[in-house]
Structure formats: structure tokens, C-alpha cells
Design a protein around this nucleic acid. Structure first.
Lengths: 327, 327
DNA sequence: CACACACCTGGGAGCGCTACCACCACAATC
DNA sequence: GATTGTGGTGGTAGCGCTCCCAGGTGTGTG
């Protein structure tokens, strides 16, 4: 309750109120070591009576454990952080952290200078690491100190665990659906080339088209709606007979649709369009896409880091096809 | 550099390497107090040589200052945290925090139990507070300890500074534009009633309609696209002759447009639709909306908290009309 | 009765840092 | 030459916590 809120209750206050030593109080709260049921009981009541909240800084100091998770995002420029996907990830990690008394920080790691990550992780305030847009170069730079406290969203390595989406499977399902719906001139607005998980989608697209004896039609995009907007026009300029456009993301697809409609092209009658991610807006604009539980995925990652049970392994979340009117 | 990365350099290491005492090294780094140019120089080189990064936990411990900013979001349920707007805010705050060695946490504060905020701020790990969806009840519960380290996004009070958007002005501009375009049966999908900043938009809408001798047509929404989707149908059911719908947010407007188009209503020919916020997607779907620099706004708020120069005052960011095809 | 071996407890060091204080040199003033 | 600064410096307490270790009690075994 803290009537006057003069000074926050410390473990000493709790111990004094419970009539035990600080050591005993600490042991009760930590849950390890010995403590009599009586002591346990009295400490617990003292804690709730005084509204005691352990001081994260002090705990981190003695443990040498750090006080926040770092979300490191690789990209060509600091603008990668403007991505709503990054925001969503940071938000989800922040939520998972809160009950542990930890905070989150985000920083950009230049694609051309992955070693910059080292400077960030040299800070002992960093308790754990979440890698976004992970590249192989980055995986090798995770310091020993943070092994077991690092998770990559996307590709992993022998030492760094990861949670991942089955991009290949999701994209295959989408392309297969388009094919079965009779589309034969299927183009794709891809993600940036350096991004492993985006490339898996592209490879799946190529394989399916190749197996069907169809040529690939690719325009490089970057996940953004704005880029999708521009890319749509480029696709139709290069291959005017295109009858389907696969977007690397929902944002891309929405940009594509915006451009097509503005140019008088009917969706899906003339050109079918698909996305990837199933963002909330996808439902309202009736976008056919692949759905995966992003929030849950990131929550899984954050939990792995927080509970330090991050064994080097990859957890793949499936991607499920969601059929709507756009394709 | 940290060759073996055995143990992070401490201030003692720096002092020893520089041939000065820990006190002197500390003074140099803090920038206050006396220090000879020679000492200053030697400490600085030692710092960069050893790759010294100050330990945020230790610093926070001695200062009693906390180690992370808390973003407290009021709402009816924990689902408010799912809002991309919250994600964006958390992301922006996290970015601003990183260089200060601080992290961010997010927590939900139930609308019906604002005193729950006290439990969150009792945690001394909390270095500062950012209030989102602020209510007046919440403003009164900001602890003295955090005054000067609290900013509200939205309404403020005599003791709590705020950064705010000119919702009233933005909405007025939108409604005026619709009126001047000849629309006379203008409906609005509002935000939740308890949200002050949303109500300012509603009041502006009412006033303009009232001044023009027109009746208001309101359906309560909640900022989401899904709700806008449903609300659009309700509007047309209750007032079939509606010729314009003002959305409380872009997401709302996108939901409205989705519903209308699906029902064969042409936008903007039959019904004009407007949004509010100018999210990236708005441009690609040609949505008329009001634009304000959300990222900059939140960055301003975060900076105020971080630099502890949060004087009780309100900074209002203007809202500018962006005309596109939807209205 | 001594001993081992549980269970339980408090004292105390120390994590890395900042802030305060005492101190020393050297100049300027009376 | 004694006094009062003024710039520069190092020693040290202590922030709140955890963990180790020394020292208790009790119950069972030789």
C-alpha cells in the first residue's frame, strides 16, 4: 500500500517486519535453499503487506546478468526500424519481459557492418538478445556470454536457436492455389535478396513454377506497401499478360492492389493478388494470404530467452493458407 | 575490442589503465566536477581502448533511478496492447531509450481499476512513465517520485506534462472539407467514449454539424478495422442516405471502405470516407486523412522523460489534412 | 554419550558505481 | 609569513541484493 510512499520497501524492511534475517527473506523469495514453513509464511505476508518489489538493478548487479533484452535488427539503414513488423516484435518482447522486471531496447545493425553487434552486446546491461532479419554473419557474432540467452527470429545456427516460419511451405501453398485456380502467368514481388527467410519464399515460388514448366517473373521489393505499389506497375510493364501477383508480404500485396485498382485492373478478375502474414487489415480488404501466429512466435522467442532455456534448435511454426476474394 | 571477452571492463580497470583513481575516472565520465585536461585525456583513451561500457544496473542502483521506462496503456482489457498504435509507441520509446542504456516495458492498466498503476510504479526499476490512452483518473495517480519523468500522450494535467495531437483541429478540417465538397449527410464512426482524445474529435464533428444545422450520426467504434467494418453496415442501416463517413482512425476507415465496396457502395462517388492518422497504408489505398508525425510525437515524449526535463505543459502537434481520392 | 547428518538461520563480503569528504598543491591576498 | 581560496585528486561509504560460510538446532545412528 505504501501510505506516504517516502521510500520503497527493501528486502531489509521485509526481513525486519517478518522478524527474520535478510538472508532468510532472500532465500524465501528466491525459492531455493532451506526455509522453515513458518519463516516462509511470515516473509510472504510481510512482502504483501509492505508491497515489496525487488529492485531489478540490485539483482542484476550482483548476478552480472543485465537488465534488458536487446532486439537487434539487421538492415540496410536505420529505416528498418520503421517497419511495423519490428514494432510488433518489440511490443511482443516488451510484454513478455514486463513480469520479469526486464526492459527492451531496439537497435539497428548495418548489413555491411555486422560486427557492430559486438559493440552492442559488450554492454553488460544486455541480458538477452533477439535477432531480427537475421543473417548468417550475425549468427557468428553472438557472444559466448549470451549463448542460451539469444534467439533468432528466422534462420538459426549450430549455436544459436531460432524460431521460424515455414515461408517455403506457405508460399508453396499459395502458388499451388493460384495454379489450381487456373493462373499460369504468375509473378512475384520478392523481399530484399539478403534476407534468408524471404529467399525461402522466392525459392519455393521458383521451384513450383519450374516444376510446372512455367517461367518465373520476379521484381525485387522490400516488404513495404509503397514498394509494392511501384513494383505492381513494373510487373505489368515487363509482363503485360500477368494474371497473378504473389506478394512477399501483406503490405506488399496491399500496395500492389492499390496500384492495380488505380490503373483500372480488376482484382481478382484480371489479376489475382496474394499476400503473406495475415495482418489484421488483410481480412477487411479480403486478401488471400498465408497466416502464422506472429505474436505467439515472438512470444515463444522471448520466453526462451527469459527462461534461459534456449537450446540450439529451430522451432518452425507452420504457415496456413487463408483464402479470401483477392485470389 | 575485448579480445578474450572474459570479463567486461569496469571503471576500476579504466582507472588503473589511465593511472588515475576510480573517482577521477568517474568524474571524467560524468562530465561534472573537476578533472585536469591530462586526466580527461588519459581516461578517454583508456575507455576506448578497453571498450568500457558503464554498467547500467550499478548506476541505477546508486542513483535509485530505475532501469526502464514503463509504457502504461489504459484500456478495457489486456487486448488494448494488441493495437499496432501501442506497438508503434513502444517501438519508438524503445529506440529513444537504447542510447541511454534503458529498456522499455509495457503494461495494461484496467479502465475500471486505475489504482493498479500504483502497483506498477512502486517498482523502483521504473525510471519513467509514458501514459497512453490517458484518463484523468490515471493522471492523479502518477507518484511524486516520477514527476519530471512522466509524460502523457494525450491529455495532461497541472502536474503531468503531455504531448498531444490537435484531434479537434484535424477533425474539423476533415468535416469542413466534406461539407465544402457538398456532403450534407455526414456520419462518424467514433472511438471509445472513455478516451479523451477521441472525444475531442467527436465534439469537433458535432460542433461543425450543429453550426451547419445538420444532425449528427454516430456509431461507436474502437479504432480497429474490424469494428469499422461492422460499423459501416450499421451506419447505412440506420441512415441509408449517408453520403460521407468520418472514421476516428485510418484503420477504422479502411474497415469501412472494405465493407462498403463489398456491399457494392462506391467510394467516394456514393459515400466519401475519411480516416485519421495517415498510416503508411493510407497513401496506397488513397485515403483522405489527417496526418501527424506520430513517431516524432512519441519521440518527443520519450526524450522529455529521458532528459528529465518534463515540465508540466502540453505540447500540441498540429494535424494536417491530406486529400486523396477517398473523399 | 558421541557422532553424523539432516534442516534451518544470520553474518558478512562484494557486485560496479557515484557522491561525499578530506586532502594536497599552488596561487592570490592581507 | 599566515590566511583564504581554487583546481585537482584519492579514499571510502553505501545503494539493495545474492550467495557463501560459519554456526546453530534438532533427530537418528554407532
Amino acid at each position: 500500500m505504501t501510505t506516504a510512499a517516502r521510500r520503497a520497501a527493501t528486502l531489509d524492511d521485509v526481513a525486519r517486519a517478518a522478524g527474520v534475517s535478510r538472508s532468510t527473506a532472500s532465500r524465501v523469495l528466491a525459492g531455493n535453499g532451506f526455509a522453515s514453513p513458518t519463516a516462509r509464511e511470515r516473509v510472504r505476508t510481510a512482502v504483501s503487506l509492505l508491497g515489496y518489489v525487488p529492485n531489478a538493478a540490485a539483482r542484476a548487479l550482483v548476478h552480472g546478468s543485465g537488465v534488458r533484452l536487446l532486439v537487434a535488427v539487421a538492415g540496410t539503414g536505420p529505416a528498418v526500424l520503421d517497419d511495423p513488423y519490428v514494432d510488433q516484435a518489440v511490443g511482443a518482447v516488451a510484454r513478455a519481459c514486463a513480469p520479469h522486471g526486464l526492459g527492451v531496447a531496439v537497435q539497428w545493425v548495418p548489413l555491411g557492418a555486422p560486427e557492430r553487434l559486438t559493440r552492442l552486446t559488450d554492454d553488460r546491461g544486455v541480458a538477452g538478445l533477439v535477432l531480427l532479419n537475421t543473417t548468417t554473419a550475425l549468427l557468428d557474432l553472438v557472444p559466448r556470454r549470451l549463448s542460451g540467452r539469444t534467439v533468432s527470429i528466422g534462420i538459426g545456427s549450430a549455436t544459436v536457436p531460432s524460431v521460424d516460419i515455414d515461408n517455403g511451405g506457405g508460399t508453396s501453398a499459395i502458388v499451388r492455389h493460384l495454379y489450381e485456380a487456373g493462373r499460369r502467368r504468375i509473378a512475384m514481388v520478392t523481399g530484399p535478396r539478403w534476407l534468408a527467410c524471404a529467399n525461402r519464399s522466392v525459392r519455393a515460388y521458383r521451384r513450383l513454377l519450374h516444376d510446372a514448366g512455367l517461367p518465373a517473373r520476379e521484381v525485387v521489393g522490400d516488404f513495404s506497401a509503397a514498394r509494392g505499389h511501384a513494383a505492381a506497375r513494373e510487373v505489368l510493364r515487363r509482363w503485360p499478360d500477368t494474371d497473378a501477383i504473389v506478394g512477399i508480404s501483406d503490405a506488399t500485396a496491399l500496395g500492389v492492389i492499390g496500384r492495380l485498382r488505380a490503373d483500372g485492373v480488376r482484382v481478382p478478375e484480371d489479376v489475382a493478388v496474394t499476400g503473406f502474414d495475415d495482418i489484421p487489415l488483410a481480412a477487411t480488404v479480403a486478401l488471400t494470404t498465408a497466416s502464422h501466429p506472429v505474436r505467439q512466435i515472438i512470444n515463444t522467442a522471448a520466453t526462451m530467452v527469459l527462461e534461459e532455456r534456449a537450446a540450439p534448435a529451430t522451432t518452425v511454426f507452420p504457415s496456413t493458407l487463408v483464402l479470401r476474394e483477392s485470389a
